[in-house]
Design a protein around this nucleic acid. Sequence first.
DNA 1: CGCTATGTTGATCCATATCAATAAGTGTGG
DNA 2: CCACACTTATTGATATGGATCAACATAGCG
Lengths: 232, 232
Amino acid sequence: MPEVHYPEIRALNLFAGMQEAHFQALMRGAYVQNFPPQIDLISEGEPSDFLHVLISGSVDLFARWNGRETSLATVRPISSFILAATIRNSPYLMSARTLEKSRIILIPSQDVRGIFDVDGEFARAVVSELAQCYRSVVKSQKDLKLRTSLERLANYVLRQQKRAGGAASFDLDHEKRRLASVLGMTPENLSRAFKGLQPYGVTVEGARITIRDQPDLERFARPNPLIDDHAT
Amino acid sequence: MPEVHYPEIRALNLFAGMQEAHFQALMRGAYVQNFPPQIDLISEGEPSDFLHVLISGSVDLFARWNGRETSLATVRPISSFILAATIRNSPYLMSARTLEKSRIILIPSQDVRGIFDVDGEFARAVVSELAQCYRSVVKSQKDLKLRTSLERLANYVLRQQKRAGGAASFDLDHEKRRLASVLGMTPENLSRAFKGLQPYGVTVEGARITIRDQPDLERFARPNPLIDDHAT
DNA sequence: CGCTATGTTGATCCATATCAATAAGTGTGG
DNA sequence: CCACACTTATTGATATGGATCAACATAGCG
């Protein structure tokens, strides 16, 4: 792999603390690849041959069953994905496809498990990352089971606003089709849900959202750090 | 803590590989407690002061939002719970209450984090455990988003059958009320869903389930290891 | 500039929730 | 040990959220 990428990878929490020799060993076996949009990277059920690190672009994690499909998460740079399968040497539970043109580092899972066994600092970093992933899915589970689709959308809008810098107007960063899937609804229903937020001062033009009455929306959405804060 | 419990705790994957001195250190700070049924152990949002290890009984992990409540999982002996919050030193995302009379070991989170930082073997065990928890929630997420409630129940019945030994007749081990919540439906709907499985040869008398036509039920349920196998 | 995928809107259907009443357990104290 | 209270489970009637189907609009994109 070209050494240009070393510093930015090394800067990731996952790799920051590990021994230099181990990092070098991982990098030697790794390689970078560029993918166009809409390319299937991995399929659920396959053995987890590589740990993936997304350097640029974005990736959709999704799953299928019985002819249905749902989006579970979106990966944005710079972060790793499918770490749990790599560590457990188990088949992927989710499939992944690029959403945009993406640059991805592939690190052989075997190497990752090898270093994991000999580098305590790396093992600890993996723990921290996994714990975060785990907590993130639990939050998403609570979101799904405790809220109606309108409430999920309202809270998504508030989260996205914060991510986009906090201004009253901002852009969605999901295609609406996928957003619907992530939120556990159909595209038609998402369209209507956006209309359903109008009484709370939310307007939509294309991908642009404007929140006219922030307190009113928050009164309805009741955002909760134990569901909506991605940091904690 | 009474030393009688040491061997069975030490036998847990989580503690099996760690250095004896570190194990002793953890145990010195820990204590066992007996709880009657229906006792709140922890509440979401609280700081994670203790790692819990369930020795006997059973514990419900649940969450609340805006006056609603949902069960997320059931803990059965012998396993730890709320490990992720302990490791990240973050507030609990779920609340926990005993379902039956339960015996629980409480290990101060601070001690766990301390040993975690100095014992690589323990850190690796924590990783393995967390990765499994993570994968388990992802499966549950797929179950919820990709299946109807009838399909979820059908697959639950098959999973429970396997857990109970594989015979055609077996007992539910959840109160139906809670099972409904775990499966993401109302108790009324669960009642009707059981009726809805009759055409596939499932009969219910109280907590006793009988599967009269296994292949037929499986044809409908379409169980999938990437959703229903708790081991992988 | 037209083609194709995405998004919107309307009409309808279906799954599931809600509300209400009853039945069946389960536990408690007299 | 039984009667009462209380919780849980079932059943029925109805409401509603959300899905589906179909038509149309719109926006990217070659």
